[in-house]
Design a protein around this nucleic acid. Structure first.
Lengths: 318, 318
DNA sequence: CCAGAGTATGAGCGAATGCTCACTCATGTG
DNA sequence: CACATGAGTGAGCATTCGCTCATACTCTGG
């Protein structure tokens, strides 16, 4: 008595997409959708929210809010940046990462839409992960995605914030992950890893990247590197004693935006953000705890592009 | 006691955009938005719906529904088309133009995203108008928009469905409208119009267009040309007697998709859709009354691309 | 300065929404 | 074969939304 459903998973998403289309584009009420699809109202509601949850629905605001534009202009001038986008505030308690994600995605999309092959380097972190989540599906087989940082957690599993796989999945682009732990304690092993031909390719690509997207981590007690278990409390203390106020792709820098040479920096399994001459290096970060590291990174010209939130932009300028 | 508001118009849209951002991206309730912006709930509601009405919010579905994909593939094969998009059905009573508009816009966007200068020719009609309405703002100064058809109504006003101005406005592209009535009754006047140098430029551009977007009109009693008062009942009868089943940019064709030479065709103030060798000619049309003209146009290879609705696609294939 | 018209604002209310809870049914396990 | 488990389903209900109406306010012309 089976009728259709070659793949129950697929057809569920299909129905969800259909319901969402009727809801958002058609403007039908959920009752009408239920009638249309021949299901109960509750099911229609669930389909719509499923479509939402699966990110099938992308909402875009076609208007640059004046207040944010002013902040962008001022940031651009003050820090001599090439690219700046400021996302409007999303209420007090809201997660700023959530606010900047769609804006960051639209910045990345501009590069992805180029028909000329682009090499796009990616760091990691919550902000980048959220950005990639907001990307639409585009066919980008002409581009290359390259990871700046190892994707192996200390416990041996692939890192949760491994953005490059997700991105490559959505974009159908060639991708070059770093088959490397985030930190390599033994310098000998580190050297031998770096000697791998695959790694050399990745390093070469990253050095010639047209654009690099990175998160920016604070080095306070809430340092993501520490909270996520990549570095120990001792490591953190040591770096802070050396003046570290932030990190980009695990490379710590001080309040002047100078990368630190330290015990930790000699263990990092990854590449410094760089790229070819004139390339874009865009930081994606927002939140009060990011103000100090962002200010340092901008001062040291570690970044020439920025996507942040309205509050963070104000703080950076104050 | 004035505080800000340099331009009340601007700041209203700004507030609307902010409210819409909070609503759609932040997922706040309208009460929360009201608190956030310091206005009443009703005002928040009005801001959100204003943002909607002004088209600040664009919703996109990131999923190609399986059933529609199948229809696209079949249409592509059957009529040997280059581009086909089928929009999912939007309930029985819904306006099919509304359903296809966002899909058509995304097709057009693909061309607009090209950095190489494109020449894009546009017809008129409700479907094209709706498509343009759904376009996002993109800076396309490298492209040229050229109109295939005059924009002057019989009553002397600029036509309501003048899509090219709207499009150019959104895209910041150079545009070449046809400063010409839709129909020119006096052949002498027509000749002298065509001799105008401006018109020659437009004709040249249209003939070299990379892509042409046109609506497809039926020639039944509900013919848009007739309903909108461009042609008389006598004209309509005469064309139908000659076998006309549809029209593209006012050029009538028969059931085999052959353009008719007729009294009417000698009065048309416009250009035939054409374009350079290998160009795209994409028809945007949906609805039961479009099935006959679409089938004819496809048979006669007047189009090599199509954006239509699920129902229309099914009808075309049955 | 006043009068009138058109527009923005806030209250109220019915409809729509989404969340929770109890239930069913299919699947897998002892 | 009985039973546990868990995903999916439908009903009820509190919340939220969007529409209408009465009112206040502003702008313009006399």
């Amino acid at each position: 008595m089976k009728k259709r459903l070659p793949d129950p998973e697929e057809s569920a998403t299909d129905a969800a997409a259909r319901a969402a289309w009727l809801y958002y584009v058609g403007g039908l009420t959920q009752d009408q959708i239920a009638t249309e699809l021949g299901v109960s109202r509750q099911r229609a509601q669930r389909l719509v929210s499923k479509a939402m949850a699966e990110g099938l629905i992308h909402v875009r605001l076609e208007h640059r809010i004046a207040g944010c534009l002013a902040l962008e202009a001022e940031l651009k001038r003050r820090y001599d940046l090439k690219t700046v986008r400021v996302a409007p505030r999303l209420g007090e308690g809201a997660d700023p990462t959530h606010a900047i994600a769609p804006v960051a995605a639209s910045v990345m999309e501009r590069f992805l839409r180029q028909p000329e092959p682009q090499t796009i380097a990616l760091g990691t972190g919550r902000a980048l992960r959220a950005m990639v989540e907001e990307l639409p599906k585009i066919n980008c087989e002409q581009h290359k995605l390259v990871s700046l940082i190892g994707n192996i957690s200390p416990d041996g599993t692939a890192s949760n914030y491994d953005v490059i796989m997700r991105a490559a999945d959505k974009l159908n682009a060639r991708h070059y992950p770093m088959p490397l732990p985030v930190l390599l304690d033994d310098p000998e092993i580190r050297r031998s890893f770096y000697a791998l031909p695959q790694l050399k390719i990745v390093a070469l690509l990253a050095a010639e990247a047209d654009v690099t997207f990175v998160g920016v981590g604070q080095m306070s007690e809430s340092a993501p590197l520490y909270v996520d278990g990549f570095i120990s409390a001792d490591d953190l203390r040591e770096e802070r004693a050396l003046g570290a106020v932030g990190e980009i792709a695990s490379w710590c820098f001080d309040s002047q935006g100078r990368f630190l040479e330290s015990r930790l920096s000699r263990r990092v399994g990854g590449l410094r953000p760089g790229g070819r001459e004139g390339a874009h290096t865009i930081g994606i970060a927002a939140g009060p705890e990011k103000v100090t590291p962002l200010r340092a990174a901008l001062k040291g010209r570690l970044l020439n592009g920025l996507v942040t939130s309205e509050q963070t932009a104000e703080a950076l300028l104050s």
